[in-house]
């Protein structure tokens, strides 16, 4: 390596807490790509890191709050949305982003999610959907597809999975998108859109967990999971999220909802101002 190369710094280094690198995520884990796309979105929008708050819950992806070089909080399991709601209402000028797992947001934290979306709290939720509880050993959860093998469904899963984009849209989110970890550019664009929108924005990222999901489902490496995303993804922007299914042969991705609605915080402040002048 030449001296010049040794001096070269990664363009997104300033978004990371260097002393915590390398991150704990496995080789080829999609969580690293989500962190990368998030950093790129902040860079391209030229957002001051002092105005960003990243909140995460428990799980592999939950570690992300310790890696971004912004104010952040690693909450208890399932509670990042509750914490983020408080942060946003207390300081409306902040951009509050929740980045968490499918288990954290839709199993133990499911109620927080649907009600924050219904109230249109102005927070951005990025969900790393790896179809299982990664950190605790790959148990099946509410997003595990029917018939998938996991450590706790050794004969195949017999439960139906949540369709997260449909759930978010039906609950009232103003922006809903789904991409896979391979769609790095469109994912970054969606994160940028979400960051600029007022209201509850939801971006689902289908993320590969080769160690704990792929290995049990005939995809031994991260590359084979990425190839599955490449072959199975079908972009259907603004199609009916109810029909955006995920199966071994097809993953419907795209932007599904992009509407305008006043946020909870705005209505709250307007109400307060009105009552104070009366």
């Amino acid at each position: 390596m030449t001296k010049k190369q040794l001096e070269m710094k990664h363009p997104y280094e300033r978004f990371l807490r260097k002393e915590r690198m390398p991150h704990i995520w496995c080789e080829g884990c999609g969580n690293g790509i989500i962190l990368n796309c998030f950093a790129r979105a902040l860079d391209e929008l030229d957002i001051d890191l002092n105005n960003v708050v990243v909140v995460s819950g428990i799980g592999c992806i939950g570690r992300i709050s310790g890696y971004v070089n912004a104010d952040s909080f690693h909450t208890t399991h399932g509670r990042p949305i509750a914490f983020a709601t408080g942060a946003k209402l207390a300081k409306p000028e902040l951009k509050v982003v929740v980045i968490s797992g499918d288990g954290d947001l839709f199993a133990i934290g499911g109620n927080h999610f649907i009600h924050a979306a219904r109230r249109n709290v102005d927070i951005k939720v990025i969900c790393a959907n790896n179809f299982v509880y990664g950190m605790t050993g790959g148990q099946y959860g509410p997003t595990t597809p029917l018939e998938a093998w996991t450590t706790t469904t050794p004969y195949g899963n017999i439960e139906q999975a949540f369709n997260l984009v449909h759930l978010a849209a039906a609950s009232g989110a103003v922006y809903v998108a789904r991409w896979t970890a391979l769609h790095v550019r469109r994912l970054t664009e969606s994160i940028k859109k979400a960051l600029q929108k007022e209201g509850f924005s939801f971006v689902e990222v289908i993320s590969q967990c080769p160690e704990i999901y792929g290995r049990h489902n005939k995809m031994k490496t991260a590359i084979s999971m990425m190839k599955w995303f490449k072959e199975a993804s079908e972009v259907r922007n603004f199609s009916d999220p109810a029909k955006a299914d995920i199966s071994p042969s097809r993953i419907i991705v795209g932007e599904f909802v992009d509407v305008e609605k006043p946020s909870y915080g705005r209505l709250l402040r307007e109400m307060k101002a009105k009552l104070q002048t009366e």
């Binding site: 363009p11 990371l16 390398p22 080829g28 969580n31 690293g32 790509i33 990368n36």
Partner: peptide, 29 residues
């Protein structure tokens, strides 16, 4: 203990930036 990639031909690079974006470990740009 892992194998980083090696450059075969830098002149072929079209600067699309996909490697930078898809790297989970911030190890290439």
């Amino acid at each position: 203990g892992s194998h980083p990639p090696k450059i075969v031909d830098e002149t072929k690079c079209a600067l699309c930036g996909f490697c930078t974006a898809v790297c989970p470990d911030f190890a290439i740009f």
